[in-house]
Computed example of a mutant assay.
Amino acid sequence: MTVGKSGSVPSPPTDRVVSIIGLLAARNTPATSADLADALDLSRSTTGSILATLEQRGWVLRLPDLRYQLGPALATIAARAREALSLPDNAMGHLEALASRVRCGAALGLIDGTEMVFVAMTDRLGHIPRGIEVGVRLPLEAPGGISVVASSGRAVQQRWLDTAPPDRRDQLAHLLTQTASTGVTVWGADAADIDRIDVLAQVVTHLSSNAASQRLRDQVRALIDDTSGYPYTVEALESELPLPISYMTAAVFDAGGTPRWELQIGPLRSAVSPDERRTYIEELTATARAMSQA
């Protein structure tokens, strides 16, 4: 749900329709009209009317037991959306394989001007930091998106640096150079914060079923941003000691060699050994290269 500066929704009727579709997509099982109305804090008559229209259009399918699930018309829309996003070939296959090898969640974000929108992710092997889901848009502000920005032009890098506090810009400029050289960014956090990030991510996921919780979800995401730490330097990563790792990122390039997507994995572990760090980095960068070639 997109809200204005005052917290109001630009089009409440549209938001109700989108919320119903979103909730059905988020559920693992079909839902009754009453289930949807209660979860979204809508009247049952309003929910029934919306579902009737969606059923006519094929956007939802009513089962014999009167429960609803997503309808066949959305398959065509989803296919067109994937074409419009120009995702790398077999993007979900790459994500699922990567997640299986590193045993944690994986996601792909598309850099779109001054924002990054998450366009694909796994959902069975852990939580990506920030409690994100497909469709979530985040501002492209330092230090976020550093993997893509590091391979972009100087003008893009300068705009990105300008979003950071002045006292951090020199360090971030160094990290841009480091990321361009290594092809990966490794994010750390205080060991105590790792568990907090995971719990907060689960809270955001839980709140995604209730359209009325958007403001609370935004507040929880802000807390995650505050605790997600900072990119490690190469010197820190070469330590022989275990390090807390929140998540790791690498750029994925289009056919013209332009960095367009950011590939992420979210170990969310308070102690990662040097050998494990190397494995994470090797798997992440190998997948990023394979997706770029695709």
Rank of each mutant, 00 (worst) to 15 (best):
V148E: 06
M248Q: 09
R44A: 11
E96N: 03
R289Q: 03
R101C: 05
G126T: 07
V136K: 15
T163V: 00
L241V: 14
L237R: 08
P129N: 12
A26T: 04
T205D: 09
E133H: 06
V203G: 04
G131K: 08
V136S: 15
V102S: 09
R124Y: 00
T287W: 05
R103F: 11
W261D: 03
C104A: 07
H206T: 15
V9C: 13
R159K: 04
I21Y: 06
A106E: 01
E262K: 02
P139Y: 03
A192Q: 12
P13N: 13
C104Y: 01
S6C: 01
W187A: 00
I194R: 03
D195P: 02
L85M: 13
E235N: 10
V9L: 15
S147Y: 06
M291V: 04
V252G: 02
Q56C: 07
L140D: 03
S209P: 01
G126V: 03
L70G: 10
I77V: 04
S147I: 10
G71A: 07
T258P: 04
Q293L: 07
A290P: 12
L237N: 07
T53P: 03
T163D: 00
A155R: 09
V186K: 00
L161I: 01
W187M: 04
E115W: 09
I128N: 12
D162S: 12
L161Y: 01
T182A: 12
T249W: 01
L243F: 10
L51D: 08
R57Y: 00
L268K: 10
P242D: 09
I146P: 01
V102K: 03
V134I: 15
V199R: 13
A271T: 14
S292D: 11
P30C: 05
E283R: 14
A91L: 09
L176W: 00
Q171F: 04
H94Y: 05
Y68I: 03
E240S: 13
W160P: 08
Q293T: 11
D193P: 02
E240W: 05
G153L: 08
I146C: 02
